[in-house]
Amino acid sequence: MAELKRFIVRRLVTFIPTLIGVTLLVFIIANLIPADPARAWAGGEKASPEVIERIREEYHLNDPWYVQYVFLMKKLFTNDIVSPRTHNKIWDDLIFGTSQGVAGAGTKYGRFFITLQLTLFAFLYIVFIGIPLGVLSALKKDSPLDSAVRSLALVGVSTPVFWLGYLLIYIFFVRFRVIELAGFPEPTQRITGIMVIDALLLGENDIAIQIINRLALPAFVLGFIGIGVIARITRNAFLETWNADYIEFGKARGLRKSRLMRHALKNALVPIVTVLGLQFGGLLGGAPITETVFGIPGMGRYMIEAIRNFDYPALIGGVLLFALIYMLANLIVDITYALIDPRVRY
């Protein structure tokens, strides 16, 4: 366990330069790319000269770039940036929640939590459909099921998420009205930040059910690519471990099949976890599209609304937040990796 601690510390140390790099890249997007960042930050073409001038002062846009960088980061990390569109501080919109939501209604949950919940649902689909499907197709190698999984993986990565979304909306909403597309119920109190769990904790079961009903289809659409990919990876990883010498030796030791499976699965988990981490990035990236298709007010949608309304501060906040979550997810993947495989702890 001491090694594990050392591994985590070492991993955290490499985390820092990447984090600095990420903030630099965000800075480049924010300040160097629009022809006139002050105008962009003030809200684009419609902004009045006074506002632009104020922004120029506030963000030190007449100073050298490193001063600008430091001030931007300071403002970002102290939640001191206001969206010219929603007039909320961007981290209130995104994380902390506001009394004054975009549509006027207040929300206890920042946009981030809505996306998080959607992503977690999609992740569940990937794990609980993809992995068993992969194991089955490995055990039934070269069967019709196996080729079906192979095709699913190929079709999955080729399917435009938005198209799949509309196809399912057409079937389940337009043709047979079995899903809801409007409204987004909230539990009365924010506890963990994940709405379904909060609702269940509060005993508001009907709200929990509404949330699940609302998210089941979008999460499936978001996870669809990943299901095939994970099934494929699981199949190949499992086949490889299933033919490994230690499984053969396990048979020779007289282990039961369920135990052999356990050994094979745990070993196969090493590549699977890596790909799951990558898939998590894919899910986050897919959020803007899925949220647009299904009208879910998550942070992807928030970014797109920001772009359409020339709300650059909100866009920058969203980009940074997405990167931070993804980095955190990768950190978790690496630590899980070390937990599974004692060899990487060194």
């Binding site: 990447t18 986050l284 990236g285 803007p288 970014m303 920058i316 990167a323 993804y326």
Partner: peptide
């Protein structure tokens, strides 16, 4: 650094 962003998000930005 570039791979620390989900691809589509960076592209959007």
């Amino acid at each position: 650094i570039f791979l620390a962003f989900p691809g589509l998000i960076l592209a959007i930005a």
